[in-house]
């Protein structure tokens, strides 16, 4: 079994209220070195068997059309990770 990871981030020019709230809360914990936080989403698509180019293309398609909202989000990564045996 393999997994395809899809990372989705709010578009850089779009306001990210969650990231904004987090970056302002960090100093309360004494964490002051980070000047910005943006919060995205990670999806893991499970595949039984090999990830073929075709499957990867399908994942990209799904990422663009369904996992993200192209109006406000970008798909920043679609990649394969092989499951490490536990």
């Amino acid at each position: 079994m393999a997994r395809i990871v899809v990372d989705v981030m709010p578009k850089p020019e779009i306001l990210d209220p969650q990231g904004k709230a987090i970056v302002r809360a960090l100093p309360h914990q004494g964490v002051t070195v980070f000047s910005g936080v943006r919060q995205g989403k990670r999806f893991e698509l499970e595949v039984d068997g090999e990830v073929t180019d075709e499957i990867l293309a399908t994942a990209r398609e799904a990422a663009e059309t369904m996992l993200s909202n192209p109006v406000i989000e970008d798909v920043v990564n679609v990649s394969v990770i092989d499951d490490v045996e536990a």
Partner: peptide, 15 residues
């Protein structure tokens, strides 16, 4: 509180 951003209650608990 804090818009439920990060996780509900996750930021407030450090008040």
């Amino acid at each position: 509180s804090y818009g439920d951003y990060l996780r509900a209650g996750a930021i407030s608990r450090f008040a």
